[in-house]
Amino acid sequence: MSTKPQNAKTQNAETPPLLKAESITVEYPVGAGLFGHGGSLRAVVDVDLTLAAGECHGLVGESGCGKSSLGRALLRLTDVTAGRIEFEGRDITHLSTRPLRPIRRRMQMIFQDPQASLNPRFTVAQAVAEPLIIHRLAPNRAARSRRVLELLKDVGLDEDLAGRFPHELSGGQRQRVGVARALAVDPSFIVADEPVSALDVSVQAQLLNLLEDLRSNRNLAFLFISHDLRVVRHLCDRVSVMYLGRIVERADTATLFEAPQHPYTQALLRALPSLEPGAPATDRLTGEVPSPLDPPRGCPFHPRCPVTERPETCFDTPPGLTTCGKNHQVACYAHPQYPS
């Protein structure tokens, strides 16, 4: 049924990846108050991620799992504590602001709340022109206006809206402005952090179609951060599932949804309310995500894990990802393929 026969992931055998992140760890200092020699919160722990040009990689997990921190770290909006980020063949992990500037053009972000990410005093045209000015991408005023109108057209906004302010737009229109701003600098990689979560259902489909068009027409790579599994399944080539800062499972989308291997992924999929009325209620995951300030020793998921026969290591050392099938990795000691 797929409309796209040539898939991003099939072509990455020879071509170098667009983005390669290795062992990324992000820590935030916490509690460094008056008396405290505060500790640190490990938002992202030892995460690897590789993206090919034009690939859409879904990153799912519950609030506080570190998915937004990872997205921001990849764009160098948050400093990494450890690890290495290579983007378009260049190590950008420790680049300072000035050499980073041209690279920032190639990697952009779309935020969840377009209301909060747009300057309320800028018109649509000014908002979209701003990145063109900052990166000196238009030789003169006329060229800039032309480019702004082009961009508005690319994201499906009527040019009549150019003079409007954000509060005069609907949520969907504002999010299109956010997309136009990201596109203005001609990026190759976009981190989209919950880009449709704040939108009404009837408008979500419009935005998802727009993102999919951009991906296929411009060969844009996306890290698509979302808690909405339906949307991720629809849009992404590959999916990583995050829990308490770590990737616990990663697979091609169809595999992940049809044959999830990690007990947490399985629970997430079961928890998704079915659109079939009267579908039997399945067993629920009990308990809650532990605080990242005080993560459990061993596997981060062990306090909620429904697996009954578990090796002792679960309670002692966090498992790393291990291959359990074609393009499929899981971090679970109880998995039959996990090397003992």
Partner: peptide, 10 residues
């Protein structure tokens, strides 16, 4: 039909 266009309400 994963990755096909979603029907939109315009």
């Amino acid at each position: 039909g994963d990755r096909t266009r979603l029907p939109e309400i315009p």
